[in-house]
Structure formats: structure tokens, C-alpha cells
Amino acid sequence: MSILAYLIPISLTLGAVGLLAFVYTVRSNQYDDPEGDSRRILSDEWDDHPRP
């Protein structure tokens, strides 16, 4: 069962990483225009250097 000593910290770390990533997306306004974003992928005029 000593494997648990690795697995549990790993699973917790992964969860924390996911949470932090989500918090980052919220803070960088990525949910402001879900409707528009879902349509923009159809645009030919993509921008290689999107503004922050």
C-alpha cells in the first residue's frame, strides 16, 4: 500500500493544477463571450498574436 504515498499527493497536485488553470481562465476574461468564441473558430481571419 506504500504506493498510496505517491498516488495521493499526485492526485491532489493534479486537482490543484486543474483548479489553478480554471482560476486563470476566469481571471483572463475567457468566459465573457462564450457565444462569440464558439463561432470565432469558424473565422478565416485568425490572429497569430491575439491581444491580451
Binding site: S11, L12, G15, A16, G18, L19, F22, V23, V26, R27, Y31
Partner: peptide, 16 residues
């Protein structure tokens, strides 16, 4: 945002 982050915290914690 405040609600969304709380939701996320609850979600990730409940998964673990």
C-alpha cells in the same frame, strides 16, 4: 467571477 471560482473550488475538491 466570485461565484464561478467558488463553484470551481467546490467542484475540484469534491472530485478529489
Amino acid at each position: 467571477r466570485d461565484l464561478l471560482i467558488r463553484l470551481a473550488v467546490a467542484g475540484f475538491a469534491s472530485m478529489n
